[in-house]
Amino acid sequence: MERIPILRMGEYLLVTIQVDMHDRLAMTLQDDLTNRISETSAKGVLIDISSLEIVDSFIGRMLGNIASMSRVLDADTVVVGMRPAVAITLVELGMSLTGVRTALNVDAGMDLLRNSLDARKDALYGSRIH
């Protein structure tokens, strides 16, 4: 069965969607990611959608579901690389991806995840002295 690869890098999981996904593939990714977060105790998920030419309501819903499920499993999600034409279309479609954190590119997305994890560790263990 066709699958979208999920890469592990330390405490993070990385996904690059490079194909035009049919609906079942999107559902499979949602399930696979949820399982991997739980197996690896990942603290953050980065989803790169810079190759996606469209995001329709189905894919938008999948991104929202992944963000919600990962939050329940104690991981942050950030979606990066959305093309401007996709953003314009998505908003006109009526989806504003509420609850999904976004960043312009992979670097900015990783910064967001790291900062968020640091803030959580600080809150847990008290501020570190540098």
């Binding site: 030419e53 469209i54 995001v55 329709d56 309501s57 189905f58 093309r83 401007p84 034409a85 996709v86 314009i88 279309t89 998505l90 006109e92 479609l93």
Partner: peptide, 12 residues
């Protein structure tokens, strides 16, 4: 942008 809009509408 127009391509993206019409393709998204077609997908829905």
């Amino acid at each position: 942008v127009d391509q993206t809009k019409v393709v998204t509408a077609a997908s829905e």
